[in-house]
């Protein structure tokens, strides 16, 4: 249910070399050109848009590795809020 929003955020802040609409949910975002600087923008916007705070333990390459992994973290944090 978060896929569309995550893709929107990646489109705006991901600065990917491969267009977002050509990526699968499982595609490797680093191979698609995601840099650490772009990750900052993606992370800040995710926190803002979904009203979550990503803890240090989840702030790693794995979290931002694919659209699916981002969705997984958002879901996990949204669920733990309720």
């Amino acid at each position: 249910m978060y896929s569309e929003k995550v893709r929107e955020i990646l489109l705006k802040h991901g600065r990917l070399s491969t267009p977002v609409d050509q990526l699968e949910d499982t595609s490797d975002l680093y191979n698609a050109g995601l840099t650490s600087l772009a990750t900052v923008g993606v992370m800040l916007t995710l926190e803002e848009e979904f009203d979550i705070e990503i803890p240090d333990s989840l702030l790693g390459r794995k979290t931002f590795g694919s659209i699916n992994s981002i969705i997984g973290v958002v879901e996990q944090l949204k669920n733990s809020n309720h």
Partner: peptide, 10 residues
């Protein structure tokens, strides 16, 4: 990885 891969896909 291939001639049509982006620069980061190594």
């Amino acid at each position: 990885r291939s001639p049509d891969a982006p620069a980061n896909d190594q």
